[in-house]
Design a binder for these strands. Structure first.
Lengths: 232, 232
DNA sequence: AACATAATTCGACGACGATCGAAGCAAATC
DNA sequence: GATTTGCTTCGATCGTCGTCGAATTATGTT
């Protein structure tokens, strides 16, 4: 049984700016080294190290040794999902002052980024809209479903979903409310599959040191042909 | 755009045992007074008051004045969902020492309780299992769906769902992984509707001062007739 | 072997915040 | 009006934790 102390422990871990920065930096599913995380959290490596060991001890992160580097990543998708939930609330907390000018980095993040293992930002939302409008998926606040025709169509595009080993015989997908767009994008198995598809074929590429993504020329063509998205 | 400080702020709020206790006490959707919350968090009313004002300022709680009492409740279902997510992780954090003996209160909570607006515990899981086994709903890790036959059958039982005004034309429901049973129970609109149905007809009743529920004699009959659940 | 870099541990400092007593308000009851 | 009860504000105390400098360990490079 979960007691309140265990809950508070998790909250405490997230409730520290440096650690929150580390966790959000890892939200895109990448594995980063301790020093990289220190830099993006704005603290010294010693401090980051202490944070990382605490996060790892609590099973929020896992470490992978590779030479003299230690790569840190989120322990599993559930942790990402929890962080999503917190970000959802955090976004609504302070009606943040209407920013007049967005920094270029912010703009890039809004445009396209990864969210653990799937697309988010305007790109993520545009893909979701396209899938909904052509009846490939159906969305609700809490749930999503891939229609039979959608399943077949995605298959033709080369996006394979493997629902074997699943409790259900229908292919589900998960809507994830985008905190920048305030509209749902596709998460879950389908979101992961789409993201992987684009990554493998180098249709998108990570902008170094951010969670932001850049759509390559081939990617632009693919977005138009697959999803009818023209302005990327 | 959500920055890390906003996230840390939420974490900080949850990351304090007294506040975590307050939030979990409100997880069942009830509204409680400041002193009640103080007692169940194990702090003095002054301390609780300070916590409550912070939680309210952050829009995690809302207050409702009624005479000389101030009733506090979770601001919305999203907050409950966020807490669910945290509890999910908290449950997995420490492989808690295998409890040999459970206190009577724990047993009652495991047996049946509310989770914001729906059933949880053995009761919640049993109902979910029953719905799945008779094909009324289908579950996946992240999503759930009410089948057409399930929809009709629930209607006959007097459990009405109103999917009007919703984005989708299909009735979805949300699986919510039960932290005591480690299996999904029904949340979302359907979960709420079932819970309301049972509450209205006094088929279950709250055990005072806990989130635990008691099944009344009529409730036992209803559970058997509706869902084929015999051992409650 | 010597050196450079990644990462951790240790210790000390400083700040934030949780707590409760005392006092102050507000609303109901006598 | 006086009293009781629910709740909040203020102020002081005390712990905890985040931080970084210095030193240590580990790995890779020259």
């Amino acid at each position: 049984m979960v007691n309140t102390n265990q809950i508070a422990e998790i909250g405490l871990l997230v409730g520290e700016p440096a650690r929150a920065a580390i966790l959000t930096a890892l939200m895109d599913g990448q594995a980063l080294t301790a020093t990289e995380l220190a830099r993006c959290a704005g603290v010294t490596p010693q401090t980051a190290s202490s944070h990382l060991s605490r996060l790892t001890a609590a099973n929020l992160l896992t470490v992978q040794k590779q030479g003299r580097h230690r790569y840190h990543r989120l322990a599993n998708a559930d942790v990402a999902k929890m962080l999503e939930g917190i970000m959802q609330i955090a976004a609504g907390t302070t009606p943040q002052p209407r920013k007049i000018v967005l920094g270029p980095r912010d703009t890039a993040l809004r445009k396209a980024r990864t969210c653990y293992d799937h697309f988010a930002g305007q790109l993520g939302v545009a893909i979701a809209d396209s899938l909904v409008s052509r009846g490939a998926i159906e969305f609700d606040d809490d749930a999503g479903l891939i229609t039979p025709t959608g399943f077949a169509w995605l298959s033709e595009l080369g996006i394979e979903l493997n629902p074997q080993g699943k409790r259900s015989n229908r292919p589900f997908c998960r809507p994830c409310l985008d905190w920048s767009e305030r509209r749902p994008h596709v998460a879950g198995r389908l979101g992961k599959a789409i993201c992987a598809h684009f990554m493998e074929r180098k249709l998108v590429r990570r902008i170094t040191n951010t969670r932001a993504l850049e759509v390559t020329p081939n990617g632009r063509i693919a977005l138009r042909d697959m999803f009818g998205i023209r302005d990327f």
